[in-house]
């Protein structure tokens, strides 16, 4: 079984209903956009392989339903997530206000060292904007997370956002490996064998097999 990637990162998209989570994911995974609003039922995911520092990284991005009724289902996915995108809609004040609630949810359900990022989506709709970019920045700084305004429709910053998050996760992981050596707990690092050999040797053994 040939491995087609070096890392697998699980990312989670959360935010109010209709802020554009599915569209952001659709833009990132298919580079396409669909203007009809189809609300997500439960949970869905897409996988895209990107390359960072010559490493193939598989991003399994979980797209959650924003609707309240799926909350129990979706929160179950927080724990396994290595990065979480908090998405709000810049044309919808409420969705921005709710970011705090979402952050609280993360604190409650996600692992402590999860990488977070905040996205203000629909930035192409300037004339309907309700939340200024500065307020977004302000909130992000408050919580010590990165922030970007995106537009799935106009394909603005979507790629950048995921790459940033992936890079941050990778950096954190590399730091961990550096500090603790090849760690058993890095279950998400696909080199996760029993630790007796380095990643390199693992690849060797793979080819041997």
């Amino acid at each position: 079984m040939a491995k087609t990637y070096d890392y697998l990162f699980k990312l989670l998209l959360i935010g109010d209903s209709a802020v554009g989570k599915t569209c952001i994911l659709f833009r990132f995974s298919e580079d396409a956009f669909n203007s009809t609003f189809i609300s997500t039922i439960g949970i869905d995911f897409k996988i895209r392989t990107i390359e960072l520092d010559e490493k193939k990284i598989k991003l399994q991005i979980w797209d959650t339903a924003g609707q309240e009724r799926f909350r129990t289902i979706t929160t179950a996915y927080y724990r396994g997530a290595m990065g979480i995108m908090l998405v709000y809609d810049i044309t919808n004040e409420k969705s921005f206000d709710n970011i705090r609630t979402w952050i609280r949810n993360i604190e409650e359900h996600a692992s402590k060292d999860v990488e977070k990022m905040m996205l203000g989506n629909k930035c192409d709709l300037q004339d309907r904007r309700q939340v200024s970019k500065d307020r977004g920045e302000q909130l992000a700084i408050e919580h010590g997370i990165k922030f970007m305004e995106t537009s799935a429709k106009a394909s603005i910053n979507v790629e950048e956002a995921f790459f940033t998050l992936a890079r941050d996760i990778k950096a954190k992981m590399d730091r961990k490996i550096d500090s603790t050596g090849p760690s058993k707990s890095a279950g998400y690092q696909l080199s996760g064998k029993d630790g007796s050999s380095s990643k390199k040797s693992f690849w060797k053994s793979c080819t041997l097999l």
């Binding site: 699980k10 039922i41 439960g42 995911f45 399994q60 799926f70 179950a76 996915y77």
Partner: peptide, 13 residues
């Protein structure tokens, strides 16, 4: 993850 996904999917729909 797969099992969880299946479970939540059948639960959701």
């Amino acid at each position: 993850d797969l099992i969880a996904f299946l479970q939540s999917t059948f639960m959701s729909f």
